[in-house]
Design a binder for these strands. Structure first.
Lengths: 228, 228
DNA sequence: AAATGTACAATTGTATACAATCATACAAAA
DNA sequence: TTTTGTATGATTGTATACAATTGTACATTT
């Protein structure tokens, strides 16, 4: 994990509440907890070896993210995410990653531009060698650089949010080396458009990049959480 | 507040935590608490006459929304939102409200379509009479109907989020009757495009609708929170 | 005077105790 | 048999006590 990621996650992987929050979120997104499951504070607390307090705080965050629905004095129920939800997020992300690329074209710094070029160079190397973990890490990083380069706190914030939602899906698609290669090539084109200061092209390419990732996922029949 | 709004906000305006959460959020968005202000749990708790527990839970939610930055064992600092943040949100919303209108065109039910027409009818009436409060309420409702009609839980969720951020700004722009009138006319065109099943036009119009609202705000020199 | 160490105060982090609310089961009455 | 009332248990809501951490002021040492 990069230095920035740690900060952006409010350093909260290192508190009990943070651990609880991330654990439960992972469990929901990966399908361990399914739609309509009831999560009880004491059960989770005992399972993770903590008291109810950090669990409650984590619940509140998950509720705000829409992953949990809390009924007062009754219980917490998993909202889960369906295949359609993931599809919708890809569409939303497509538009916003496009906007991000457009803004990045205007605001990117020399430093970030160089990091972007280096990222693509490395990605192509690891893709050719079939290094799965590195490919995923570099892919995440590529988008992270663009988020920062957009120079928009808001866009950055929300794109990271969307990213989280599809992380599980992305992991499984990128690991397939054909998609990894194609993805790299698309990254290169986006980078070149930004380098050439062609905002329209950058937006269009980033747009298509996400749509392609979506189609790839869909074609592979990948699915994350059971439809209810 | 409509029945749906109550549910969508997890009925939490009615718990202490909910009250604390909404109170602090309002105070940040309206500028009472400014960038870099430090919020102390006990101070807020005493001020609102509650214990630290609900305050802490509210803090966690505000942190997730990006309105508060928490430094472990140290304190909670207001992130606030700047004029640029609001501008960025308008751009983001423009794209997503467009997408929403597109999807609504495909998925809207007879019932929601009728509600939309009625909304516009009422809006024009109240605009002609200069009824400020009703205009705002109906405007909120117009967008809320579209969110629901999009048939996308995800898009609905996030558009509501964005909406919250610019609510303060919107309130001040809509209250000006010229903008209220123009806004109504734009609503009517969007509604007609949806009724005609013309998704492209609906998207384009919704897009422009938000951009127009943004320009109106900008021209009036409206500003919400001091730039840091 | 500058650097360092230490004690203390302030603040958040966590655990736990108690109150309020809700659902359920079961009994009593119609 | 159905309905209604009540007691009970389970669960969340809130308050508070205590632990851990951090920052600061001040004394001590060099």
């Amino acid at each position: 994990m990069t230095e920035h990621d740690r900060k952006s996650e409010s350093a909260d992987r290192y508190s009990l509440r943070g651990k609880v929050f991330h654990t439960i979120r992972e469990d929901i997104l990966s399908g361990k907890y399914k739609q309509h499951d009831e999560l009880k504070e004491v059960a989770i607390a005992e399972e993770l070896g903590v008291s109810r307090t950090p669990v409650r705080e984590a619940f509140r965050q998950l509720e705000l993210e829409g992953l949990l629905q809390m009924i007062p004095n009754k219980g917490a129920y998993v909202t889960g995410i369906t295949l359609k939800d993931i599809e919708d997020i890809y569409m939303i992300r497509s538009l916003l990653e496009g906007l991000c690329a457009r803004w990045a074209t205007k605001h990117i710094t020399q430093e970030k531009m160089e990091e972007l070029e280096e990222n693509i160079y490395l990605s192509e190397f690891h893709a050719s060698k079939g290094h799965g973990e590195q490919i995923i890490e570099l892919d995440n990083r590529f988008h992270e650089i663009l988020y920062q380069a957009s120079d928009s706190k808001m866009l950055e914030h929300w794109l990271r949010d969307f990213h989280q939602y599809v992380k599980v899906a992305r992991k499984q698609t990128l690991i397939q080396s054909e998609r990894g290669m194609a993805s790299n090539q698309e990254h290169r084109l986006i980078m070149e458009a930004i380098r050439d200061k062609d905002a329209d092209r950058a937006e269009e390419l980033a747009n298509r990049h996400i749509i392609n990732a979506y189609h790839n996922m869909k074609n592979k029949g990948l699915f994350i959480a059971k439809e209810e």
